[in-house]
Design a protein around this nucleic acid. Structure first.
Lengths: 149, 149
DNA sequence: TTTCTATTGAGAATTATTATCCTTTACACA
DNA sequence: TGTGTAAAGGATAATAATTCTCAATAGAAA
């Protein structure tokens, strides 16, 4: 079974997108980083291998992935957006308001009722976002104050 | 029983916050507008009554309300954040990716498992965000394309 | 009233993201 | 293996949202 990275490369190629070394490195960075990185973080990572890469290229790649529904944007209101391209199956996030850590949560209990809502309100749903905000164990221990999301 | 607006005014007063006419108007605009307005929209509304009000004042008020946990920010990645200060009870949103309309959803089925997660992952949760993205009935009828959130 | 300090207003500054525009290059096809 | 062409890249300017700054104003407690 192919990795998410390989699958994504193939899918994009089939759709007629060109595969440049920069683009492949960006895709690799996004799909293989489980910490929900920012554009800036991916940019730094890619630059270690391709030092001439432009930040604009990372943004353009993100825009393309969004169009394809292959990346999920987690915008927290303040600072840069975080991205989740490692996994597409619907899942929830635990977001620490102390240190901004984002933890993925897989739980059958969480994938609730989109089809029920679709019927009740007439919406045709295509994606979802379920985030819980709070303090992670280490920030609780450190006695961090709770900033709002 | 007092309105959300009145309750909020009282709570803030008790906490030692001063109540200026601008601030009261901003609070009223946020708490009594059910359409999840942006800062800019509240600013426009408040200016009709107090034309000298500054946009910065609205932002400062939002920051204060965030600190108090009295407003929920819905940042959509592109454009301005939307705010929900009309109701604090946990509820979900149906967000139309065609016209950006945000519909509140009250449903017991949706308030899932925070305490369960808190235990499992050791997080101390204080708020949540449950958003479903899709097309509202009128955008479906209009054949709008589905932009990602 | 007076005093004290939170709050305001106006605009500058900052930050993230998008747009521009010219160059480079992936890739289909000869 | 070349070649044409349009997609993609790079550098930087532009835009948009939000935050900061600081002097002036005005709640509210005494």
């Amino acid at each position: 079974m192919d990795s998410r990275f390989t699958q994504l490369i193939n899918k994009l190629r089939e759709q007629g997108h060109r595969m440049t070394p920069q683009r492949a490195a960006i895709l690799k960075a996004f799909t293989e980083n489980p910490s929900h990185p920012t554009v800036e973080q991916v940019y730094e990572q890619v630059r270690r291998e391709f030092p001439m890469t432009s930040l604009a290229t990372v943004y353009k790649t993100v825009a393309m992935l969004k169009e394809q529904g292959e990346i999920i944007e987690i915008s927290l209101g303040a600072g840069s957006s975080r991205y989740d391209a490692a996994r597409l199956e619907p899942h929830a996030h635990l977001i620490c308001t102390g240190c901004s850590r984002i933890v993925d949560v897989d739980d059958s209990q969480l994938a609730v009722a989109p089809e029920y809502l679709a019927e009740k309100y007439g919406f045709n749903l295509h994606s979802q976002r379920v985030d819980y905000y709070g303090l992670c164990p280490s920030c609780q221990a450190a006695g961090q104050s709770q900033n709002q999301p």
